[in-house]
Design a protein around this nucleic acid. Structure first.
Lengths: 240, 240
DNA sequence: AAGTGGTCTAGACCACTTC
DNA sequence: AAGTGGTCTAGACCACTTT
C-alpha cells in the first residue's frame, strides 16, 4: 500500500519549502506544470495544494499562482482542560449567592441578579494544585444540583440549552493575589498565583458561564506551542 | 456572483450541526444522498465535507460515513508576538556572558558555554510593560550585533541558519518573583509577575533560543480563545 | 452483496493577472 | 492573448464496514 499520490506531492513540496528550496514569497510551480511533472491530473495536484494551504505554507492567488507564506510564530496553541485522571476534585461549596464583583462584571449581570456558584479544590496525591470557582447566572426553575457531577469540560455544563459546538470560550491569564478564602483553602501565603479566567459565550453573545482558577506553583506552568503544524504532531515536550 | 455550490453545501450542513439538527455522534447523509439532493457531482459534495472536516465538525470514516465530532473546548489559541507599533523597546544590554542558570538549563548548555544576551524593557507611553531577556548559544564567528535591530519576531532571529518555517516554539507561563535587577528596571515591588518563557527549537531538535519575559500588571492579561473556529474569525487580541 | 468514503481521470468553462 | 487558479462534471476503481 503506497501513500496516495496527492499526499506524496504535498510531502515533496512541503519538504522543499521547509528546507529553503522555496523561500517565503516564492511562487511554486503552477498546477499545469506540476500535473505534467507528476503525470497526473490537475485535480490531484490541487488536492495537494489544498493541504499545504490548510497548513499555512502557501496561499493561492488567482491568475498568479501559489505563494509561499511567512510563518506565524506569534500564534500558539494552548491546552487547558479538566480531563485528567491523575487529578481529583474536592467540592467545597455549591449554592446560589449574590455574585462577587468580578463574576458580576464578567457575566454582565444586573443589580440583584443571583448566580450559581461551585467552588472546588483540585488535588493530586493530596497536594492542592488549584482552586476552582465557577459562576453561572441563576434562573428560577433551571436545574442546578446535577451540575456538580460527572461533567468533563466547563463548556459541557450548557449542553442542555446550547449545542456545545456553537459555544466560544475566552481565556485570560494573570498573576494575582487570591482572596483570603482561597489562600486559606490552598494553604498558600501572600504570594501571587497564576489565575486563569474563562468566559463561556453563547452563539448569541450571551455570557453564560464564568470560571476562575488559581493555580499553585505545584500545578506547573501553562504550556503552549507554535509552528511546524503540518509535518508532525506537536506534543508538549518535557523540558527542564 | 453567487456563492460557490460547495460553499453553500458546507454552510447548510454547518448550520444544521450548530443548531443541533445533527447532534454529536450523528451520521450525516452520505455523499451519494447529498449529491442527489443538491443535483451535483460527488466531487463537489466532497469538497464541502473536506471544509467541515478541516473545521473539526465532522470526521470521515471509510465504509461508514461522516460522523459529527464533539467540540474541543480545551484547545485554545493564544496570540503572543512582538509586532505592535504602540509599544517601544528600550535596550538595556547586549553582550556575551556566562548564562544564568535557567537559560543554561533551558538551552541544554554544557559547562563553560557562553550565550549572547539581549535585555530590554517594553514601554508604552513611558510606562514599563515588560522586561525581556533573550539568550542565544554563542558560537565563535557568528555575527551577533545586528541581532538587536529590526526584527519582528523572536523566531526570525534564526533565519540566517534555519528556514523560519521549520522552527517550533514552546511556551511556558508562570507566576514568579523576578530577580532583583528585573524588579529594579521595572520599578516593581516584591510581587510575582506573569513570566512567559519561549524556547525556539530547530527542525533537528536543537534548542537555539530562549526568551523570558516578565509582564507587569499594566501589560494586561494574556488572552486566548477557543471554539467556533469555522464560522467567524476569532482575533480579539491586542497583545504585543 | 450493498453501501460507504478514498483516490483519480480527462475534460470543461470561468475569473483573474500579466504581458 | 496566454497563463493562472476556481469551480464543476460524469464517470471509474479501490478499501472498508455492515448486513
Amino acid at each position: 500500500m503506497s501513500r496516495a499520490l496527492y499526499l506524496r506531492i504535498a510531502d515533496t513540496l512541503r519538504q522543499r519549502i521547509l528546507s529553503g528550496g522555496h523561500p517565503v514569497g516564492d511562487l511554486l510551480p503552477s498546477e499545469n506544470e506540476l500535473s505534467e511533472a507528476y503525470r497526473t491530473s490537475r485535480v490531484t495536484v490541487r488536492k495537494a495544494m489544498n493541504i499545504l494551504e490548510g497548513e499555512g505554507y502557501i496561499k493561492a492567488r488567482q491568475g498568479k499562482g501559489y505563494i509561499v507564506q511567512p510563518p506565524r510564530h506569534a500564534v500558539f496553541t494552548l491546552i487547558f482542560g479538566e480531563e485528567d485522571t491523575r487529578h481529583e476534585f474536592r467540592c467545597l461549596e455549591v449554592g446560589i449567592i449574590e455574585p462577587p464583583e468580578h463574576a458580576a462584571r464578567s457575566l454582565a449581570l444586573k443589580e440583584g441578579d443571583l448566580v450559581v456558584v461551585i467552588r472546588r479544590i483540585l488535588d493530586r496525591e493530596g497536594i492542592p494544585l488549584a482552586y476552582d470557582e465557577k459562576f453561572l447566572p441563576y434562573e428560577r426553575g433551571r436545574p442546578t444540583v446535577e451540575l456538580e457531577l460527572g461533567y468533563s469540560e466547563f463548556a459541557d455544563y450548557f449542553s442542555d440549552r446550547f449545542s456545545a459546538l456553537a459555544l466560544r470560550t475566552e481565556m485570560r491569564v494573570r498573576a494575582t493575589l487570591p482572596p483570603a478564602h482561597v489562600r486559606l483553602a490552598l494553604g498558600s501565603g501572600e504570594e501571587r498565583l497564576l489565575a486563569v479566567d474563562r468566559l463561556v459565550v453563547s452563539p448569541a453573545g450571551e455570557r453564560i458561564g464564568f470560571s476562575r482558577e488559581y493555580l499553585t506553583p505545584e500545578f506547573g506552568p501553562l504550556r503552549a506551542f507554535s509552528g511546524r503544524s503540518g509535518s508532525a504532531e506537536n506534543a508538549p515536550n518535557p523540558i527542564p
